[in-house]
């Protein structure tokens, strides 16, 4: 009988120790999760703060840059440059003062590429739209329009 009591008490002790371990483990896991969460949150806050600072810095630099660009534009105005140049004793070279050297068969720039303006009439654009619609309806993608630009 005493040995049974001892056994039961040991079993109870083991059970309670197990529960305590599980509880402590749970607490530990929860604490760890909390730590990770807080850490992440702190990191996010710091990153957010840094992003805010950088954005403000960028804005300031952009504003200062805009101001500098305006100042440069004021300083490089042709009227100001011409005035300064005259004050320093410069003057534009005339054609009679220019020496031209003739190079036979020197390759010159080709003429600029030109495009024909599309017809003004509404009917032609309507016809084109109708043709495109017809091709689409037939399951054939209409040929892409020629564009002059790479812009949107």
């Amino acid at each position: 009988m005493p040995s049974r009591i001892v056994k039961t008490s040991v079993l109870n002790h083991q059970r309670s120790t197990g529960s305590l371990r599980a509880f402590l483990l749970l607490v530990g896991v929860l604490a760890l999760m909390g730590l990770v969460y807080l850490g992440q949150n702190g990191q996010a806050t710091m990153t957010g703060r840094r992003a805010q600072d950088l954005t403000q810095q960028l804005e300031r630099i952009q504003r200062e840059n805009a101001q500098l660009e305006v100042e440069i534009a004021q300083l490089t105005l042709p009227s100001r440059i011409a005035e300064r140049a005259r004050a320093l004793g410069f003057r534009p070279a005339t054609i009679s003062q220019t020496v031209f050297i003739v190079v036979k068969n020197y390759p010159v720039d080709s003429k600029p590429a030109v495009a024909a303006r599309p017809a003004d009439t509404a009917s032609s654009s309507e016809l084109a739209a109708l043709w495109n619609d017809l091709l689409t309806w037939m399951g054939l993608t209409p040929a892409s329009q020629t564009v002059e630009a790479t812009g949107p």
């Binding site: 590429a113 002059e148 790479t150 812009g151």
Partner: peptide, 13 residues
């Protein structure tokens, strides 16, 4: 354009 695209005018007849 701010996305980097560039439109260049082409002379038109």
């Amino acid at each position: 354009y701010s996305n980097g695209n560039v439109y260049r005018a082409t002379p038109t007849v």
